[in-house]
């Protein structure tokens, strides 16, 4: 079962920018994950700041660990958004693993 968050509807122009906008979307994703859904983050038609992606995706990793990524699907990402997701995910997974290695 999948739950989808369409980011275009939260964009100003073509961009989703702030942590403030991302935070309630992360809460929405967490609720869907808690019900056992996979969550599709649909980036069609939008660019995103690193801060937005970090608050949404990085926040989920810090709270639930890298395994959460197996239940997230990133759809229709531009090259820039894809690179930002890859950077945020790697950096936050690394941070999580270091924090839990003792």
């Amino acid at each position: 079962m999948r739950s989808q968050i369409t980011l275009n509807q939260y964009a100003r122009g073509h961009m989703v920018g702030t942590r403030h906008t991302a935070s309630p979307l992360r809460d929405e994703a967490e609720k869907a994950l808690a019900r056992g859904y996979e969550v599709v983050l649909d980036f069609a038609g939008v660019e995103a700041t690193q801060s937005f992606v970090d608050e949404l995706v990085g926040g989920l990793i810090l709270r639930h660990g890298p395994d959460i990524l197996s239940r997230l699907i990133f759809r229709a990402c531009s090259d820039d958004v894809r690179a930002i997701i890859e950077f945020v995910a790697a950096d936050r997974c690394d941070q999580y693993l270091k924090a839990h290695s003792h």
């Binding site: 990524l69 997230l72 820039d80 997974c93 690394d94």
Partner: peptide, 21 residues
Amino acid sequence: IRYRELLPAYEGQYRPGLRFE
């Protein structure tokens, strides 16, 4: 401007599997 070229280098070891569609 291409944001992917502006990100800091990732120097860690972990390469998470990501599901892009």
